[in-house]
Nucleic acid binder design. Sequence first.
DNA 1: AAGCCCACCAACCGCGTAATC
DNA 2: AGATTACGCGGTTGGTGGGCT
Length: 327
Amino acid sequence: MGRIPCCEKDNVKRGQWTPEEDHKLSSYIAQHGTRNWRLIPKHAGLQRCGKSCRLRWTNYLRPDLKHGQFSEAEEQTIVTLHSVLGNRWSVIAAQLPGRTDNDVKNHWNTKLKKKLSGMGIDPVTHKPISHLISEIATTLSPPQVPHLAEAALGCFKDEMLHLLTKKRIGFQFHQQFTNMTSTHNNAPSTSHVKHEENNNYKDNTIEKIKYGLSRAIKESDKNWETSVGGATSSNFHDNTGFSNYNFANLLNDEEGSPWNQSLCSGSACTAGGGGLQQQQNKKISNENCEDSGKEIVVTTRNGSTTMFNSDCVLWDISSDDLMNPMV
DNA sequence: AAGCCCACCAACCGCGTAATC
DNA sequence: AGATTACGCGGTTGGTGGGCT
């Protein structure tokens, strides 16, 4: 047996509330309270569902509600509580006098999530995105990598891609680079941060990032298998205490991006479709690099992660960008 | 000026569960 | 005790307005 509707759908008005309806509802509630939402519209002379009346009252008409912008302090509270409670909007809203769960949820989805992403923080886990990559690369056993890595990246990709499409930035790796120069032959020059104001480049790059991430996840799995299988892979080595994953050949491919095929959100993700498997062995060029074959490496050591490319232009996430995301 | 895109947010939907019969 | 009803919550949708091309 299905759930019985709270009202007769045919006889109720839907959509935006008029000032007259607001007045009727407010007047009725001021006199009689909010005891039975099913009866309120009938008694108040409204052709609305009781549920609709309740939402209108709780989210808009209640006299104790604030309607203005969220303050810095309120935003800070939301972010802090969200890091602990997750999407428990009603609990978070309870800590913000005059704000509803709907307010908080909307503000989170439209502003705060992007703000955090722009700061390089994953809005789901509240960890820096570099930590996520690090965890994917080091702490997961390879059979899990395609699923969990894609799930984690899936949570972040929309905001990341949004940011990238709004403003080209170059990838910096100051201290990590210093560390790497002593251990890696393809160390980048300090003039690596270059900008090309070329739309084609941007468009290509976005596609390459999408595809590159998907390929990276898949490739790391393959490399691990190669290594375990006995053959020494030049792409995967761990003899210096680092775990190096070579993503150099993951940034380009003539084929369409599999990103959409494996597009996922959270746990609903099913990574690594058959198409991805089939594409694994295809030749990949690196046309956007001045010198093809340069590497992009994710390096992990003591939990820190570095991603760099020796000569290709990447994105510069400066502190200004992080604090003032272009959204 | 018109069309398009995007951000915002009010409102809706459906599910879980507490309350009531 | 089980069925029914209502409420609360979180996810999603759709209308609107502003900015950009």
